[in-house]
């Protein structure tokens, strides 16, 4: 029982990181129906920005986190401007292939010596790891930090989307671009904001991931990116609470599989869960089966 609880705590930690990445996938998909495959690499860049901020510039952790988030927001916005905006009226497949191209570019370009370099790097811990023992359970301050920051950012996102004018405009654009324009909403501006917010969350995810699983390299974004994408689809892509739910499930399934079945099976089982959910609910757990636009 204690072992199970311990694994659930580990699952929550992984799930929170996945959630931060999955939200970016789902936000962007909601607005422009694009699966932004470069999103996992923005997460990777976030991890590196945090790395340099902590190690080279000796910034305190909260500042490093904000630095990585802002840096990723800028990179996400630039990617959208350079790679996706020229394809605004192109077929979706062209955008999808471009996204894959951007992803490969970011992975290989940042592997160059004068940038991040191709090697694994040990992530600096901005403070000492403290383990708290509650009965036979062990919770580290890192786990608490990851979980609390992820939840905090998700609450902020929820407030932004539901309470602010820009958030309302985002939801309106996601539903009907033409009518949104009739309200005076500049679609390009909303898309920019969406990429900025989604990328900032991925950047935070990168820093938290680096602190929790302290090893980074330029290709580290591929698997978590894929998992987070699966999480977004699992919960219902385009739906914000769906991404959080899906990420929680993905993190949990992965950790529990490693713990009880075999750690080599964890990816297979995680994707199997996706297949089963999509067979039963093709639009994802919280997705509506079809949106009628009359």
């Amino acid at each position: 029982m204690a072992y199970l609880l311990q694994q659930i705590i580990n699952g929550l930690q992984l799930g929170s990181v996945y959630a931060l990445i999955a939200l970016g996938y789902t936000l962007v998909y909601g607005i422009i129906r694009l699966i932004n495959f470069a999103h996992g690499d923005v997460f990777m860049i976030g991890a590196y920005l945090g790395f340099y901020a902590i190690l080279r510039f000796n910034l305190p952790f909260p500042v490093a986190l904000i630095f990585a988030m802002l840096g990723c927001a800028v990179i996400g916005i630039v990617i959208e401007k350079l790679a996706y905006r020229p394809l605004r009226n192109a077929p979706r497949i062209a955008c999808l292939i471009t996204a894959l191209g951007v992803s490969l570019f970011l992975e290989n370009f940042t592997s160059l010596k004068f940038l991040f370099g191709p090697n694994y790097l040990a992530y600096p811990r901005p403070f000492a790891v403290v383990n708290y023992n509650i009965g036979s359970l062990t919770i580290s301050n890192i786990q608490i930090l990851v979980f609390v920051i992820a939840i905090l950012l998700m609450i902020l996102l929820q407030i932004f989307v539901t309470k602010t004018k820009t958030g309302m405009a985002m939801r309106a654009v996601a539903y009907d671009k033409s009518t949104a324009q009739l309200m005076g909403i500049n679609i390009d501006y909303i898309i920019t904001i969406t990429f900025g917010v989604g990328s900032a969350l991925a950047g935070a995810g990168g820093v938290l991931f680096g602190i929790a699983y302290p090893q980074i390299h330029p290709f580290m974004g591929i698997m978590p990116g894929l998992k987070a994408f699966v999480a977004a689809v699992l919960g219902g892509i385009g739906i914000i609470p769906g991404a959080m739910l899906g990420a929680g499930i993905m993190g949990m399934v992965e950790v529990l599989t490693s713990a009880y079945i075999s750690s080599t099976m964890r990816d297979a089982i995680a994707f199997l869960v996706l297949l089963i959910v999509l067979l039963i609910k093709p639009a994802g757990l919280l997705g509506k089966s079809s949106i009628e636009k009359v």
């Binding site: 004018k165 309302m168 405009a169 939801r171 309106a172 539903y175 009907d176 033409s178 009518t179 949104a180 324009q181 009739l182 309200m183 005076g184 909403i185 500049n186 679609i187 009359v294």
Partner: peptide, 30 residues
């Protein structure tokens, strides 16, 4: 289109086109 809305031209489109996922207040705020 978003600039034209700013000139004081309001267009109530065919089929009403509400934002059904937003509340009545949010629709009006937009």
């Amino acid at each position: 289109a978003h600039k034209i809305a700013g000139l004081g031209i309001a267009h109530v489109p065919e089929g009403r086109k509400p934002f059904p996922n937003l509340s009545v207040y949010e629709n009006l705020r937009l």
